[in-house]
Design a protein around this nucleic acid. Structure first.
Length: 290
DNA sequence: ACTGTACCCTGTAGGC
DNA sequence: TGCCTACAGGGTACAG
């Protein structure tokens, strides 16, 4: 999510207020097929806003549709203007051209272009009538934003009531907290000194009132996400060409991708472990996270 | 209803 | 050098 927010901030100044003059969709699908009459419905539309909800980018179009875009794992946008190419969240040195995976090009009336590149094609785009958007399956059951006022200990406890999934899976569920990804769940749990293996239901007592663990988790999530947004997101060094982000937060990982390194928590002395749940890596310190 | 697993697709790193 | 496997920041579709 911090990566998506970084992309949004980079894209907004060149996209908002612009009219779409031409659209190239260079294949029939990404993760899903493009919407019916995709290019026709974009043509001539003015982008009036660029918002983010969870990990979705939402371009509001003058005709009343929302262009909803998801970057998946490897999607990125580049801006082409006056011969210069800019990729929000990616250092110029790392944004080498990769035309093979340039799947969508939006030509703006002002002369600029927005290029969507996505090697793995886990991203997607769709068009939804703005009036219908919040009732759409993707948005209807989304959880709260991780850096917003709705994320409270009471909320977490009520959602965790009776849930026997572990905390890692619980926090990865976009219907609980919308926008927390694999990196930030590991980092937030470390800050909260909570084991990813602990059951979600332990965030509340029998009456569903938040425990002290839930109270710790809220500022842990909010601070990790807040700092990552300020840093411009994270880039895994070996993957810098593959996603929309080369911010600075990877330099501040306490646990993510740090298997075998000593835990930095003052006086802890533990060693970071890597475990796998449902095909996703989780990093934590078994000593200070309980 | 809830939970865990397999899978979508492509590129890269590391072992041999 | 080449071949093989494991793994990667996300999310969904199942089976049990």
């Amino acid at each position: 999510m911090p990566e998506v927010e970084t992309v949004r901030k980079g894209l907004a100044p060149v996209l908002v207020g612009q009219r779409i003059a031409r659209v190239e969709a260079r294949r029939a699908d990404l993760r899903f097929p493009f919407p019916e009459r995709f290019t026709e419905r974009l043509l001539g539309q003015k982008v009036t806003r660029l918002d983010r909800r969870a990990k979705y980018l939402i371009a509001a179009l003058s005709g009343g549709d929302d262009l909803v875009m998801h970057l998946g794992m490897t999607g990125r946008f580049s801006i082409v203007a006056n011969e210069a190419v800019l990729t929000p969240g990616v250092d110029a040195d790392d944004a080498a051209a990769d035309p093979k995976h340039d799947h969508v090009v939006l030509h703006l009336a002002g002369g600029g272009q927005i290029i969507y590149n996505d090697p793995r094609r886990f991203g997607f785009m769709l068009l939804i009538d703005r009036e219908e958007r919040d009732r759409h399956a993707l948005f209807r059951n989304l959880g709260v934003e991780p850096n917003g006022p709705e994320l409270t200990a009471a909320y977490l406890a009520s959602r965790a009531r009776g849930r026997k999934v572990n905390l890692k899976a619980f926090l990865m569920d976009q219907h609980v907290v919308a926008g927390l990804g694999n990196i930030y769940v590991s980092e937030a749990l470390h800050r909260a000194r909570l084991s990813p293996e602990r059951l979600a239901l332990s965030l509340g007592d029998k009456q569903g009132r938040p425990t002290e663990r839930a109270e710790r988790l809220v500022p842990a999530i909010a601070s990790v996400i807040g700092e990552a947004i300020v840093a411009g997101g994270s880039t895994i060094s070996d993957y810098r060409r593959a996603d929309g982000s080369s911010g600075g937060f990877q330099d501040r990982f306490a646990v993510y991708d740090r298997e075998g390194f000593p835990c930095q928590t003052r006086g802890c002395g533990g060693t970071i472990r890597r475990v796998v749940h449902s095909n996703r890596a989780t990093y934590y310190c078994p000593r200070c996270q309980r």
